[in-house]
Amino acid sequence: MTGQEQLLMQNYQAPRRPLSMNPRKFILWLFIVSISMLFAALTSAYMVRKSEGNWLNVEMPTLFWISSAIILISSLTMHLAVRSAGKDDFSKLKTWISLTLVLGLGFLITQYMGWSELVTSNVYFVGNPAGSFVYVFSGLHGLHIVSGIVFLAIIFYLVLAQKVHSKNMNSVQMCATFWHFLDGLWLYLFTFLLLNH
């Protein structure tokens, strides 16, 4: 056997790497699973509690409709941001990211005003669990939005530092995944409350 043949054989003996994905993206997905379980638990608790009677009919604040619209639009701007990053169009990328960030803040403010609306209609955090649940759902979701906004700010910084471009899309893609998830999560919670209040 010549040296070359020997080397070839060694190479062929080495089995291939098993399937693998980007571990960071994968970790993000697993985080999303655990957040989903948290809200699944809370909404199931809501159903179990509601089935026991002694329940208060809480009208959803109209502002929640507006905030839902805002967060839907912010998903669109997030999507456009990823597209501009893919095309290396940095000025547009900056615009879309900052717009998403502003819309995220707008969402938080609208949610907060929605709480005031609840208070004026005499639904308080303390009282019948029907009302408390609404505050818990929106408050806990709001906390996750805060983390999403921090994520967006980091991406904005990375864009300024020229670390996001068509060859390096991971971070902005992960941010988009998380943001779309938060959007979907709110729509789920809102629809759930509309159907089961």
Binding site: A14, P15, R16, R17, P18, L19, S20, M21, N22, P23, F26, I27, L30, F31, S34
Partner: peptide
């Protein structure tokens, strides 16, 4: 747990 799952799925050696 997130780490364990991600490691088992993505970081196995050849074969």
């Amino acid at each position: 747990g997130i780490n364990y799952i991600s490691t088992v799925i993505n970081m196995r050696t050849r074969g």
